[in-house]
């Protein structure tokens, strides 16, 4: 099983799209940090959890697009042709699919590590800031629900009609640009810019990082929706004639 997992992982990591998107994401991350984040978000420090949330929110669409590209590999024409052979093996298709999801998760994780690593380097280089502990919550709040939701959505959509995946990629880009209420703001781009302005200031003149219940509920709903969609895509049998 590990052998299959490693094989799938290697297929993802050596794919030319992954390499291209990896480079694009790294460049975009640096530009976002040095363009939008360096002046601080909502009057907070550039290295506050609020500013960091916005940084991750802005880079998340690229991570999602990479993830959706991974998902397109599952449903490509060639893949379907190979499926007639792999399905004859004793290995459960659902387990095989889970293994491939795990490989995708590792690919997504590596890309996320690159995005986070670039930001840590930037903060240390420009501001000599290295207290990264308070940035953990925004990382979890953005990257985890985003991964689960779009993996589930992508798998479900790919199962129904694979070209929808490209439409979803386009929607992801638009999704990041429109103002949404906190409960629906998956990337948090609006939330991290506007919510801190409504909070009382602490002794250091910065609003403490706290997230309203509606934002938590939204993330949980996205996680649940993603989980359900993934489950449906993995275990619901497609009718064949």
């Amino acid at each position: 099983m590990i052998k299959i997992f490693l094989y799938e992982l290697r297929r993802i990591l050596t794919n030319k799209f992954f390499v291209g998107l990896f480079i694009v994401t790294c460049i975009y991350s640096w530009q976002t940090l040095s363009g939008d984040i360096i002046t601080g978000v909502a009057n907070t420090a550039p290295f506050s959890a609020w500013s960091y949330g916005l940084y991750l929110g802005k880079t998340a669409p690229l991570l999602v697009i990479t993830l959706l590209f991974f998902v397109t590999f599952l449903y490509s024409r060639k893949e379907k042709q190979v499926q007639s052979i792999t399905s004859t093996t004793s290995f459960s298709p659902a387990r095989y699919c889970l293994l491939r999801c795990a490989a995708m998760a590792v690919g997504y994780l590596l890309l996320s590590v690159a995005v986070i690593g670039i930001s840590f380097f930037f903060y240390d280089w420009v501001f000599q800031f290295s207290d990264f502990g308070n940035l953990l919550l925004p990382i979890l709040l953005i990257l985890l629900p985003t991964f689960v939701f779009f993996l589930g959505l992508g798998m479900a959509a790919g199962r129904i009609f694979p070209p929808i995946l490209y439409g979803i990629m386009l929607l992801v880009l638009i999704f990041g640009q429109i103002a949404l209420p906190p409960v629906a703001d998956l990337f948090g781009i609006q939330f991290y810019q506007s919510y801190p302005l409504t909070l009382p200031l602490g002794a250091d003149g910065e609003p403490a990082f706290s997230v309203p219940a509606s934002f938590w509920i939204g993330k949980i709903l996205y996680l649940a929706a993603g989980g359900l969609l993934m489950f449906a895509a993995l275990f619901k049998k497609k009718r064949t004639y």
Partner: peptide, 18 residues
């Protein structure tokens, strides 16, 4: 409320264009 107004010492750490 602006961060750099509150902590002007950080302005010196910024690249000149910013």
């Amino acid at each position: 409320n602006n961060f750099y107004f509150r902590y002007p010492e950080y302005l010196d750490r910024l690249p000149e264009q910013y």
